[in-house]
Simulated scan of single mutants.
Amino acid sequence: MGIVLPADYKRLVEVYGGGVFAGILRLLEPDCPDAMYDLVAQTAEREEILAELWEAGEDKPSELQDGRARLVPWGYDEGTGLFLYWLVRPEAEPEEWTVVLNEGRGPLWEAHPMSCSQFLLEVVAGTTSSFYFTDLDDVVDPEDRNRFEPNSQIFNR
């Protein structure tokens, strides 16, 4: 992929592996046997899909207008199609990358200047300011908020 991944993401994958947090947020992982959940495969696929959308006239996030930054997906919400990205800027260290969300089935974007692990924590704890996760209690049973289901368990069903 040509980048060094953030240390907090590496720790998440090392400790948990890929899988689903709070019943909705899927953490992508490198070398996942299913390309749909593989970080590298999804990076290539999302770059292609976004390029097509922007070529068709959908607005590109302002942070990408100068052409120097890029988006790399690290997770998504299977229910809504929302993707979670890092905003990768050449002058920024991986630990300084911003989390950027795209609603998945529309043109709206949202930025959160924090790490992916901090964003996950805020979603699970119910303290996030993200418009897309403010109604999590309507979607996820409160008991499931703190649950993590690893890909190994999901794939073996």
Rank of each mutant, 00 (worst) to 15 (best):
D38K: 08
V40I: 11
T43M: 01
A44P: 00
A44Y: 01
E45G: 04
R46P: 00
R46T: 10
A51E: 03
E52K: 05
L53Q: 06
W54T: 03
A56V: 07
G57I: 11
D59A: 14
D59L: 14
D59E: 14
P61L: 09
E63T: 12
E63G: 07
E63C: 12
L64Y: 04
D66W: 10
D66I: 12
G67D: 07
G67P: 04
R68W: 08
R68V: 12
A69W: 03
R70I: 15
L71G: 13
V72T: 08
P73T: 09
P73C: 09
W74N: 04
Y76W: 13
Y76Q: 09
Y76V: 03
E78L: 13
G79Y: 07
G79P: 05
L82Y: 04
F83L: 14
F83N: 14
F83M: 15
F83G: 07
L84T: 10
L87K: 11
R89V: 12
P90E: 11
P90G: 13
E91W: 15
E93T: 15
E93K: 15
P94A: 15
W97P: 01
W97V: 06
T98M: 01
T98R: 02
V100L: 15
N102I: 14
E103N: 08
E103I: 14
R105G: 13
R105E: 12
G106W: 06
G106N: 03
L108E: 13
L108F: 12
W109V: 11
E110F: 04
E110Y: 05
E110I: 02
E110M: 06
A111Q: 07
A111P: 04
H112P: 01
H112Y: 07
H112M: 01
M114F: 00
M114H: 00
S115C: 03
S115E: 02
C116R: 02
S117P: 00
Q118A: 11
L121M: 11
V123P: 00
V123I: 11
V124K: 01
V124P: 02
A125S: 12
A125T: 10
A125C: 12
